[in-house]
Design a protein around this nucleic acid. Sequence first.
DNA 1: AACAATACGGAGACTGTCTCCGCTTAGCAA
DNA 2: TTGCTAAGCGGAGACAGTCTCCGTATTGTT
Lengths: 199, 199
Amino acid sequence: MTAETEAKDAQERPPRRPMRADARRNYEKLVAVATESFLANGPDASLDEIAKRAGVGPGTLYRHFPTRDDLLDAVCTRWADAVAADAAPLLTAEDPTRALADWLVRLVDHVGAFKGLASALLLNADRKHDTAWILHHASEELVARAKAAGGIRQDVTTSELMTLTSGVTYACGYSKQAGKTVSSPERLIGLIMDGVTTR
Amino acid sequence: MTAETEAKDAQERPPRRPMRADARRNYEKLVAVATESFLANGPDASLDEIAKRAGVGPGTLYRHFPTRDDLLDAVCTRWADAVAADAAPLLTAEDPTRALADWLVRLVDHVGAFKGLASALLLNADRKHDTAWILHHASEELVARAKAAGGIRQDVTTSELMTLTSGVTYACGYSKQAGKTVSSPERLIGLIMDGVTTR
DNA sequence: AACAATACGGAGACTGTCTCCGCTTAGCAA
DNA sequence: TTGCTAAGCGGAGACAGTCTCCGTATTGTT
């Protein structure tokens, strides 16, 4: 769904030349290598090393991604697009409230599988196109459907749900890499759902 | 309550010489300076700079605190002792469930005031003496009292409550420094409490 | 006062960040 | 094609932070 993201990008900042072929090539390569590298070495992986492995100079990396966060954002955005796609089937589920709960559990699992790289970006839903916004957006429809079906409280917002879920993603992602034991995502999301369910 | 912590330290690893006077002096100075510095510059503050400002060489800093986390831990532990003291009055409150909710809100506020330095350490409650353990321990009695009074569900653990709260601390701490708006701690803790309250 | 044991501190090797600027290349126009 | 120009490249190198090693200084004990 990167194409969609790009389309929006274009429509918001119209007078923007397309990237030159070599520039785009390097950009893609950098994101690909960075994904591997962040996954393997954590979010502090050496940027010069990533540049080298992508076959470009550090200057090129820093031109495309002035800060580490810009690169991390690009990586996470792609990942988030894929994760968001996972929500689509749930939109037509018969029990919207259960679908929402399922989705939140999946979200936690995905963040865990992504080594917690994205957990820092899960909040902060107001910049467009970034990780938080994509996931927020994907959740929003599920929340709306659950509300419409009367399954969850009208006064609870998507943001609030995301905030509460972020603690779970963080805890579960952390526990995985530290070998700790924490209650399961299902259990914790269940507790959250218990609080927001109508009764 | 640092004294208590030290006492436990001593009883667990008995054959441990007391620190030499100059060593203790430097240790104290380092923690004090580090607290300031982390608060002012975030958790990535330069360690050599901290050493310099404490009037010691880098070698001395690294001997006392082999890794950055060790120093951060020492700083956060002191802070956590102070925060935990804030729970004491609530232990005798007439409504234990309300007291627990109050405490969790205070916890979020404290973490926010500490610039989120401790939020990374809030989980991970199994090493002794560290931030997470101190706060976990402080919460435990309040949870027990609320359960005993029948205010909250018997099946909910302190860890689970801390995990859920950590999302809130993280979100609120973050929003403060980024100028974002998030639902208030009261509101979010309220949602959590709604989930764990008996009915 | 003398002597271990303990602790200090800073020079310096090392690693990672980020910039500057001369060189290369893509894409366009004639 | 050819030539031109803007866009893009890349790597040398300045800088900042980490962390160690080891000769020197201090402490506390006999």
